[in-house]
Amino acid sequence: MTATARFWREFPARYNLIGVHCENCNQTYFPPRGICPNCTRKSFGKMRSRKLSGEGEVFSYTVVHDPHPEYELQVPYVMALVKMTEGVNLLAQVVDCEPKEVEVGKKVKVCFRKLRQEGESGIIHYGFKFKLVE
């Protein structure tokens, strides 16, 4: 069991899909980071929060059958590397479909979901997942 602050401080990015944008080179990053790896020192003070569109496509995926212990009730679930329209990749589950419906190249959009729960009376973790676009 971990202290709530560890998760609470990530809420803005995790709940709203807010990354950062480097005003020096125009690259977008998710999760947020303080220094742009393209520009290093030149990015100091030029990293601005940027909400992602929430739209992208599946770049690669796997159906997880043997999960991290706190995800046992969700198996089998689909983990995908999603290429967002902003050019940044992020990792998330793809839900509301049968695993066999997920393919590389399929369009997806973000949704806000429960991620996991730390036991019956523990913290409930929420965050982003994706679903297929019809």
């Binding site: 990530e10 999760p31 997880v64 991290h68 983990m79 990792l91 996991r116 973790h125």
Partner: peptide
Amino acid sequence: RVRCAGIDQEWEGEVGATDIALHALMARR
């Protein structure tokens, strides 16, 4: 849990990835 500690826990472990799942994403591609 320990095997998964070598991956980015806040942004990849937290959303359901394991070390093997990440290798699987690489393999599929």
